[in-house]
Amino acid sequence: MENLQLTVSDFVALVNQTLEYAYPTVTIVGEVAEFRVSQGKWVSFKLKDEESVIDCFMAAFNLRIPIENGMKVLIVASPRLNGKWGKFSLNIRAIKPVGEGSIKKGFELLKAKLEAEGLFAPERKRTLPRVPSHVAVITSTESAAYADFCKIINERWGGMNVEVAHTQVQGDPAADQIIRAIKFFNSLEVLPEVLVIVRGGGSAEDLMTFNDELLAREIAGSRIPTLVGVGHEVDHTLADMVSDVRAATPTNAAEILVPDRREIIRSVHQQASSLGYQLIQAIDQHSVRVNEQLDQAFRRIRERLDDAFERLGTLRVAVAQLNPENVLKRGYALLRGEAKLGAALEIETYKEYITAEVKDVRSK
């Protein structure tokens, strides 16, 4: 081996083969410097600490959260010796901020980017059905959050068709697993009515999965209305900001998803009681109105009858005055026969009938 002569290319290949065998991947924490993006496709920067610095290189699509100079990051990379440029560098496979300051900075950068694109706009938000019958859930089925979620929906409503996709909810593979689950549910012939994503509380680093840019975009682009409950009430992630409805916790997600049947039963009883009372009131009020209308009708009828009787009395007086007997009582007489000489006339008085002979007829 001491006398082994190698070409430059052979040496570079040997070094890379040795590195690939001995250190296929390395995980390194350092500070970002000289960060830049070339042609929108390639990302390069230097990773440094107090004593050393190393070049890093990656494809832009692998950058899942914004990075800037001064941020502390953790990278998973493959060490390589670039034969063309004669430089040793790290080919990055994954990168994420570490430390509270860097995590917050990355979050704020991506938040501003997505907000500028309108992904948080209220007009994009869809409402959830009041009582869904078919629900998809993405979470770790081994978590306490999932157990709490199932307990609450069964206590409050139950009877739903719930499909569950088990994924990791923290760590490097988690975001991609959740993305695949979202794509799966969105590809179904019969779509669920709601897509629920839940996980319990944790540190800022534990919740970083839900600040992944690709995951946030996948949630925003879901054909199914989304309900996201991640962490505790004080925790805010990009996943719940782009969702249609944010839940403060997994338990709150279950409470938002379905109503409490006990509350509904109580509400129905109250409404029935109120409706019965309102119905009785309406009947009473209607009875009062009907009685008033009947009283008015009877008064009008009585007034008309009184008027009719009064007119009838007047007519009776007039008819009585025209009665021939009444005329005879006043001393008048009725004559029957022809007014000519020698003719017999019948004279009717009130009490007698008299026959008389016409002796004289003169013109008046």
Rank of each mutant, 00 (worst) to 15 (best):
R302M: 09
N323S: 04
A318M: 12
S287P: 05
V319M: 12
S267H: 13
E263K: 09
D307H: 15
Q278N: 07
G337E: 00
Q281R: 02
V288K: 11
A333C: 12
V288D: 09
P259N: 05
Y277L: 10
R300E: 14
I283F: 10
Y277I: 15
L279T: 04
L322A: 06
Q271C: 14
L315Y: 13
Q270P: 01
L334F: 15
L257K: 01
L334I: 11
N252E: 13
G313D: 06
E325S: 12
S267F: 13
Q278Y: 04
E292N: 13
E255A: 02
Q270R: 12
L294A: 10
E338P: 00
I256W: 05
V290I: 06
L315D: 14
V290T: 12
S274I: 01
L335T: 12
E255V: 05
G276Q: 14
V288I: 14
Q293H: 02
S274R: 01
A333Y: 07
L294S: 05
Q285N: 14
A320K: 07
V317D: 07
L312F: 12
H286V: 11
R336I: 13
Q281M: 01
N326R: 01
N252C: 14
E255S: 04
R311C: 06
A308I: 10
G276V: 10
H269Y: 12
L312Y: 10
E310K: 07
Q270S: 09
I301D: 08
N291T: 15
A318V: 13
L294T: 08
L315T: 13
A254H: 00
N323Y: 04
Q321I: 03
L328S: 04
E255C: 07
I265D: 12
A272I: 09
Q285T: 09
N291Y: 07
Q285C: 06
L305K: 05
Q296S: 07
P259S: 02
G276A: 15
I283P: 03
I301H: 06
L305I: 11
L315H: 13
N326I: 08
